[in-house]
Design a protein around this nucleic acid. Sequence first.
DNA 1: CCAATAGTGTCTGTGAGACAGTATAAG
DNA 2: CTTATACTGTCTCACAGACACTATTGG
Lengths: 275, 275
Amino acid sequence: MQKYKTEEEFLKAYNSKEFDQLSMTADILLISVSDQEQANYRKTSKKMMSILLVKRDDYPYKEKWCLPGGFLDPNTETLEECAKRILKKETNLSNIYLEQLYTFDDLKRDPRTRVISTAYMALVDKKRLTDKINSNASWFDILFLEEKNNTVKITLTNDETMINLNIKKTLKEKTTDRYEFKSIKNHEIAFDHDIVILSGLERLKNKISYTDIVFNMMPKYFTLGELQQVYEVILNKKLLDPAFRRIIANKVEKTDQIQTGAGHRPSALFKYKQK
Amino acid sequence: MQKYKTEEEFLKAYNSKEFDQLSMTADILLISVSDQEQANYRKTSKKMMSILLVKRDDYPYKEKWCLPGGFLDPNTETLEECAKRILKKETNLSNIYLEQLYTFDDLKRDPRTRVISTAYMALVDKKRLTDKINSNASWFDILFLEEKNNTVKITLTNDETMINLNIKKTLKEKTTDRYEFKSIKNHEIAFDHDIVILSGLERLKNKISYTDIVFNMMPKYFTLGELQQVYEVILNKKLLDPAFRRIIANKVEKTDQIQTGAGHRPSALFKYKQK
DNA sequence: CCAATAGTGTCTGTGAGACAGTATAAG
DNA sequence: CTTATACTGTCTCACAGACACTATTGG
């Protein structure tokens, strides 16, 4: 490459097409918590984590489910703006909590050509949008099973479909607990989105304990029982009441409203209080 | 776009050049800890964090310092492989701790054209490579100053140059402590690398307390005093001896070797022990 | 002896885990 | 009264912060 006298002169002569370029996408892991129907009038409805998937209507992976995502327009938008645009398209909502998760760049992750994807994790209160989602999209409930031989089984179900994901976790190096995730014969979800899903679930599990991130998945008013259930479903374990209440004591504020219609002692309604 | 009967058929007809593409780079924040010369024979040498910068020899930002980095070859390598290739070029070392930091994608971050950069954080024991680094590269010591009005001042110095960075931190949203970093009139370092540096330093500060990441910056044998100093310089605060020793007790193993030549009670040498 | 660091003992307060107990709605 | 959840009191144990103390080298 020849040399130029000034930066201005250099930029004028610069032609980016001389270099190999590639396409990027933003993929979004939209996570929420849904209510399962209760067994009798007394029981409170159990919570489950759920994520939004869309059905592909063209090759590659035609008819397979995948995370909502789309190509970045490099001339006009940032990756986050791209993610927001896609979220708006699929859910009709703006103002959703969004954070960059990881950039996935395996050489063969897209059969068409080299496509690098930056994944975003989004959290939302499901009550905000159930009826507004796009017709090609659907919520899938998550069942998470950690097995002994460092394998994770994730089962995604909606009314019609069940998707099984098997992922092998191998420790990347000895000084941290960073794992490398590898699909075990994944034919059930498009691209490497099984890996993206697992990465996001682990991120959420970690962050719930040192941030207030969970309140992005809660309605404005909620009971502490509901909040505890959301913690439990994300952490995938039971929590003791007094310990839980100590943890969230200074994150919530009691309102003078009271839950009604439960077949048991009614709960006070709380709202999020920033520390 | 027309429809195809099979995935194979679709892929054969697919031409990625129809779509807008862009260039990607991998930038590396290589962090280490250096010894400053001691005042007298008794004192132990103080530690400072330092990072590797390279001087740009062409436009844009000609003659400015920046993080080592380079364009990804989309046909042959992953971003991590690209980062390793550049590290090898600059330091002549492989087997350096490397983790993906963040993907930076502001529209105007590169004056040439749209370039998205995935930054990697690398940690190394400086004794492994002082003399092997590339001639255009240099270690800069870091002075970190957090000011009251959510501003961070970072001063980078090597033997000849001093680089001042000023960055404004603004809270991104209320449920986490995620900040958005913005340069305050940065003319001293190329691209958005001031933001990358701050992101990496914050990541390191966080991770040191819940991982063993710090041992990637230590030699095989070290004293607990040295280790404590590394913690202190990364966390930017003094630690109490007994508390520190409790924290790292089950991460290190005492060897039967002893430090010599210090003007005071000699310390036992320890080595990293994986939990 | 002095300076400087190495290394330990122990008190105290905080906070999580655990369990038991009381409270209250609908039916 | 029963069922199921709401909510609280309190014991214990682990652990971090704090401070004081002893140990050991080179000069």
